[in-house]
Amino acid sequence: MSVPLDALRRPLGVYVVSGVVGLEALALGIVAVWAIVSAVAAPMFSAASGIFLIILIAALAAGLAAVAINLFKGMRWTRSAAFVWQLLMVALAVPALLEGNVLLGLVMLLPAVAAAYYLFTPTVVAYSQRTGSDSGDTGTAVL
């Protein structure tokens, strides 16, 4: 069975959304490393809560990285996960903007709005229709 060449092309929105989510995962990974360094360098008030927070941040970073990678592959489940995360980013960005921290607020808000917009474009929706049972092997090679 042959797949048309147009079906194999990723739309621009897939690159934008997976890039935004990937950068957010990278930022959370950096925060997790910073939290580990801070926990080792300075005494913690509560070791259990500090360790839990580090594990939670690292798990979020790993989860977002999985969303970014699988969204790039066109998996269906990633759109909802990416959209929920972008809503959380907007919920964090608005108070930052209202408190006068404009740079931080815009850094969180603008990529989240762009990703949320592209998640609902027809080309991204059409591209992200793969399920876990799809093998991904089309049997044809495209050069």
Rank of each mutant, 00 (worst) to 15 (best):
Met1Asn: 05
Met1Phe: 05
Pro4His: 07
Asp6Gly: 08
Arg9Phe: 08
Arg10Gly: 07
Val17Arg: 03
Val21Tyr: 01
Leu23Pro: 02
Glu24Lys: 05
Gly29Arg: 03
Val31Cys: 09
Val31Gly: 02
Trp34Gly: 11
Ala35Tyr: 11
Ile36Val: 15
Ile36Lys: 03
Ser38Ala: 13
Ser38Trp: 12
Ala39Arg: 09
Pro43Gly: 14
Ala48Pro: 08
Leu53Trp: 08
Ile57Gln: 09
Leu60Thr: 07
Ala61Tyr: 01
Ala62Lys: 02
Ile69Trp: 08
Ile69Ala: 12
Gly74Tyr: 04
Met75Asn: 07
Trp77Gly: 05
Thr78Ile: 09
Ala81Glu: 10
Phe83Arg: 10
Phe83Asn: 09
Gln86Phe: 04
Gln86Asp: 10
Met89Glu: 00
Ala91Thr: 00
Pro95Tyr: 05
Val102Ala: 05
Val102Gly: 02
Leu103Ile: 13
Gly105Asp: 01
Gly105Phe: 00
Leu106Gln: 07
Val107Ser: 12
Pro111Met: 05
Ala115Thr: 03
Ala116Ile: 09
Leu119Met: 07
Leu119Arg: 01
Phe120Leu: 14
Tyr127Trp: 04
Gln129Arg: 12
Thr131Asn: 15
Thr131Ile: 15
Gly132Ile: 13
Gly132Tyr: 11
Asp134Val: 07
Asp134Pro: 04
Thr140Asp: 06
Ala141Trp: 03
Val142Thr: 12
Leu143Glu: 14
